[in-house]
Measured scan of single mutants.
Amino acid sequence: YETDHQDYCEVCQQGGEIILCDTCPRAYHLVCLDPELEKAPEGKWSCPHCEKE
């Protein structure tokens, strides 16, 4: 399936195990989030940028 999400972390610009925001195209490593997450959230997730909106 096709997605318009970026394939690198918004914070460190590296690829790998990233989680995708359900609201925007941004993607993040769990450890690059502040506060960092230990595991990917279940269900819908909005990144810090979208949470501020």
Rank of each mutant, 00 (worst) to 15 (best):
Tyr1Gly: 14
Tyr1Met: 15
Glu2Ile: 15
Thr3Cys: 04
Asp4Val: 13
His5Gly: 14
His5Ala: 15
His5Pro: 13
Gln6Pro: 14
Asp7Lys: 04
Asp7Glu: 04
Asp7Gly: 05
Asp7Cys: 02
Asp7Tyr: 01
Asp7Met: 13
Tyr8Ser: 10
Tyr8Val: 12
Tyr8Ile: 14
Cys9Ile: 01
Cys9Asp: 02
Cys9His: 03
Cys9Thr: 02
Glu10His: 03
Glu10Tyr: 14
Glu10Gly: 10
Val11Glu: 15
Val11Arg: 14
Val11Phe: 15
Val11Met: 15
Cys12Asn: 04
Gln13Tyr: 06
Gln13Ile: 05
Gln13Met: 10
Gln14Phe: 04
Gly15Lys: 13
Gly15Leu: 05
Gly15Asp: 06
Gly16Ile: 06
Gly16Lys: 15
Glu17Ser: 03
Glu17Trp: 14
Ile18Asp: 06
Ile19Ala: 13
Ile19Asp: 10
Ile19Tyr: 05
Leu20Gly: 15
Leu20Asp: 13
Leu20Ile: 08
Leu20Glu: 07
Cys21Phe: 00
Cys21Lys: 01
Asp22Ile: 06
Thr23Leu: 09
Cys24Arg: 01
Cys24Ser: 01
Cys24Asn: 00
Cys24Leu: 01
Cys24Asp: 00
Pro25Trp: 08
Arg26Cys: 10
Tyr28Arg: 11
Tyr28Cys: 10
Tyr28Pro: 01
His29Ala: 02
Leu30Glu: 12
Val31Asp: 06
Cys32Val: 02
Cys32His: 01
Cys32Met: 00
Cys32Tyr: 01
Leu33Cys: 04
Leu33Gln: 12
Leu33Met: 14
Asp34Pro: 07
Asp34Glu: 15
Asp34Gln: 08
Asp34His: 11
Asp34Gly: 06
Pro35Tyr: 11
Pro35Asp: 11
Pro35Leu: 08
Pro35Met: 13
Glu36Arg: 03
Glu36His: 06
Glu36Thr: 09
Leu37Thr: 13
Leu37Gln: 06
Leu37Phe: 07
Leu37Tyr: 05
Glu38His: 05
Glu38Phe: 09
Glu38Lys: 06
Glu38Val: 06
Lys39Glu: 08
Lys39Thr: 10
Lys39Leu: 10
Lys39Cys: 03
Lys39Arg: 05
Ala40Glu: 04
Ala40Ile: 13
Ala40Gln: 04
Pro41Met: 07
Pro41Lys: 07
Glu42Pro: 06
Trp45Asn: 06
Ser46Met: 04
Ser46Asn: 09
Ser46Val: 10
Ser46Ile: 13
Cys47Asp: 12
Cys47Leu: 01
Cys47Ser: 02
Cys47Pro: 00
Pro48Gly: 12
His49Gly: 12
Cys50Asp: 02
Glu51Gly: 08
Glu51Phe: 08
Lys52Val: 04
Lys52Asp: 09
Lys52Glu: 04
Lys52Cys: 03
Glu53Ala: 05
Glu53Met: 03
